[in-house]
């Protein structure tokens, strides 16, 4: 059974890789340079889609966690683990590429820019999610604990977002260039949308592979335990 999920997943992931290569070509050879920020703005076509995927992954984690607690369906927990692992990869990408952009655009690696701050906190929520799971001897309990972390995290994220925005409005930073300047040039918009599509398809594909892995791992554990 897991072999078939693997096949569809592989095809989707390959499509995602192909789209990502297309994005690379668009970013480095096709899209015009943005007038205000210059070359560095090209990080945007990958950074923003990565952030979108990181938050979408957490949406999946929270939804699957709620389903798991509600119905006790093992598949929901497998989906949640798979999405959380992807989420931690993509928050990692956002957190490393954000400062690379910030150093050039804003003159500093780190600012308490609300969206960057939110991503950092999301990263730590993901870390907690995995630590809870890893540190629980009874795996059934670990799954429930992790689900609770996922759900409370999702409920708290809007509040965190509002509060870090508000905090920022109290402490304006002088050197910040507005990232969302005037409306985006159509070519830039096309590149950005392709970026969104590429990372989303890639994520969904790899998510299916990861789900297949989780299922195979659990099948193995079960058979090793029952002999």
């Amino acid at each position: 059974m897991y072999k078939r999920t693997g096949w569809i997943g592989t095809a989707t992931a390959l499509l995602g890789v192909a789209l990502s290569v297309l994005v690379l070509w668009m970013v480095f050879f096709w899209v015009p340079t943005e007038a205000n920020q210059g070359v560095i703005q090209r990080i945007f076509y990958m950074h923003v889609p990565a952030a979108w995927v990181a938050f979408m992954a957490f949406g999946i984690v929270a939804f699957a966690s709620a389903v798991y607690l509600w119905l006790g369906d093992e598949r929901a927990d497998m989906a949640a683990v798979a999405a959380a692992e992807g989420g931690i990869i993509f928050t990692g990408i956002v957190l490393l590429t954000g400062p690379l952009w910030g150093k050039i655009a804003w003159g500093t690696y780190w600012t308490w820019e609300p969206r960057l701050t939110l991503t950092l906190l999301l990263f730590f929520i993901y870390v907690g999610y995995f630590m809870v799971r890893a540190a629980t001897e009874n795996p059934e309990k670990g799954k429930r604990f992790a689900a609770v972390v996922g759900i409370v995290g999702a409920l708290d994220i809007p509040l965190i977002h509002v509060s870090v925005l508000w905090f920022r409005s109290l402490h304006p930073e002088p050197v910040v260039l507005k990232a969302e300047g005037p409306t985006l040039d159509p070519d830039m918009l096309t590149t950005l949308l392709t970026g969104f599509l590429a990372f989303t398809v890639l994520f969904v594909g790899v998510l299916m592979l990861r789900y297949g892995l989780e299922r195979a791992e659990r099948e193995l554990n079960l058979r090793q335990v029952t002999g």
Partner: peptide, 29 residues
């Protein structure tokens, strides 16, 4: 010149992370 370097680095990081993830899944599987 530094901006170019940062853009390259950013895309390299993204690809390394994503492919690292895929390779780790493949190996575990």
């Amino acid at each position: 010149g530094r901006a170019y370097w940062h853009v390259f680095l950013a895309y390299a990081i993204a690809w390394i992370f994503i492919f690292g993830w895929i390779i780790s899944i493949a190996r575990r599987l």
